[in-house]
Amino acid sequence: MGKWTTFLIIGLTLTFLIGPFFIIIAAGLSAGENLAFPPEGLSLKWYWAVFEVESFRESFALSMFLAVFGTLSALVLGVPAAYALSRYRLPFAETVKTIVAAPIIVPGIIVGLGLLRYLVIPLNFTVSMALFMAHTALVIPYAVRVVTASLENLRSDMEEAAILLGCTRFGAFVKVVLPNIRGGVLAAFILGFVTSFNQVPVSLFLSGPGVRTLPIDMLAYMEITYDPSVAALSALLAIMSVGIIFLAEKFLGFSRYV
């Protein structure tokens, strides 16, 4: 393949992937009243306006809460699971792996509908509770995968050494295994955080009066008000995600784990 053809293909791919991002940033910079591209004039007013919207503030807080605590509880469940799967030959290991991966294989809409139909409606789960469970479940596959990868690089004789020095099995895990996979655990946290924060289909089914995650709130806002503030908010969120990943790569070598 010629050099120019290669450049063309790479160029087109990048435009296709990153182009929308620039369009959104630009659309948010509009001075006009409607969401449009190219923007009508230039101004930062919609970027400021985002912070004035009460529902954005509330849904941002909820999304943050879900992303942080949903991911933490996914790690609490996922790290031991990853440990067991990588250290022991378990009787139903393949089945467990499939179940653990299920939330990313099953379409989000089905997960959302399932939780709504079988937890919220018959069992009177609050919407926030269901959202929390859903976000935890969605992050578990990532937590298990990333942590498994870093456990596989850790030789198991280190734990045996700790045990022979007097540790219990659990003690060896806490004192020797955890400190040596903390990079992987942090990487799993970041990946989980971003996944949870950007989650739409499941949350769509599990939103109720006054309980909306940020992406769902943005959709709802756009149905009523078609102004550039949604574009401005999207741009801010995208920049936040890029920033997190950038820092993670710089300090953790994030791409080693994912």
Partner: peptide, 8 residues
């Protein structure tokens, strides 16, 4: 241990 199994 053969691999020493030190705590890195």
């Amino acid at each position: 241990f053969q691999s020493y199994a030190l705590f890195p």
